[in-house]
């Protein structure tokens, strides 16, 4: 017979101990002999941290490749304790990992690391974004094309960086082996998703202004006037069209 009625252990007590290795195992968790469970509690400690670390490794492979697995594991461990997921859709975990890296002092030696995380998260969002039916190349033959507005695909996105992140990302993920050094400066990265696999393409800094104008419904011609001098408009439009980024061309 128990002499006292044990108070129910709260789940807050359980999870706090599971996430804090230096904390003791909560009272009331026992082995079959009735002894306090210690190594058995470590199974949960391990599972919670490992499963979220693996989710971050899968979501940010270029970041991991740039800093190495040991550094990444330490950084991911700090992040997941401070920022556990806010919902069970792990495919979208890590939205603020880039912001965390911005403020993570040990990562300051790699100033572009947070932008690589931003790019990887944007690629992942694009991968899971709603499907859409793009317009065909023939839509370009519209003689009044430059007076029209366009609607952009849900899987389309762009982001600015002060670094040549597209090339760094390709090198870090091993999808490009033709060079060991990356040159260049600021760029705007355009993400398109033809069919199911997102593609990142670098354009001159300032290109994003054209895309913001298009997204807000301005005519193609008006948006094009915002183009930075180095932007090759033909290549830009071809990237959008072949990437399925334009889903409608509308009269204004």
């Amino acid at each position: 017979m128990r002499q006292t009625v044990r108070q129910a252990m709260t789940q807050q007590t359980f999870i706090t101990a599971a996430l804090t290795p230096e904390q003791p195992v909560p009272d009331g968790l026992i082995t079959p002999d009735g002894r306090p469970a210690s190594k058995r509690f470590d199974v949960y400690r391990n599972n919670v941290v490992v499963s979220l670390k693996e989710a971050l490794e899968q979501g940010f492979p270029a970041v991991q490749s740039l800093v190495g697995p040991v550094f990444f594991a330490a950084m991911a461990g700090e992040y997941l304790r401070a920022h556990p997921p806010k919902h069970p859709v792990i495919a979208l975990y890590g939205a603020d990992f880039a912001e965390f890296i911005d403020n993570f002092a040990p990562a300051r030696a790699i100033p572009y690391l947070a932008d690589i995380a931003r790019l990887e998260y944007a690629l992942r969002q694009s991968y899971h974004a709603a499907d859409s039916q793009p317009v065909t190349q023939s839509a370009l033959s519209d003689p009044l094309l430059f007076t029209r507005a366009v609607r952009l695909a849900p899987a389309f996105a762009w982001l600015p960086s002060a670094y040549p992140v597209t090339a760094i990302h390709r090198l870090a993920t091993g999808t490009c082996r033709d060079g060991k050094t990356v040159q260049g400066g600021a760029e705007d990265v355009v993400i398109t998703r033809p069919a199911y696999d997102p593609i990142a393409t670098a354009f001159p800094a300032g290109t994003g202004a054209v895309l913001d104008a298009l997204a807000s419904g301005e005519a193609l011609g008006d948006a094009a006037e915002l183009a930075p001098p180095r932007l090759d408009l033909t290549r830009f439009l071809t990237t959008l069209l072949s990437g399925g980024a334009i889903v409608a061309i509308n009269e204004i």
Partner: peptide
């Protein structure tokens, strides 16, 4: 099992005691 506490999700199946409550 449980996996969420407050607004946080822990991506594991955590145990519970078996009581009337």
């Amino acid at each position: 099992a449980w996996s969420t506490h407050g607004s946080d999700y822990f991506n594991d199946l955590l145990p519970l005691p078996y009581t009337e409550a």
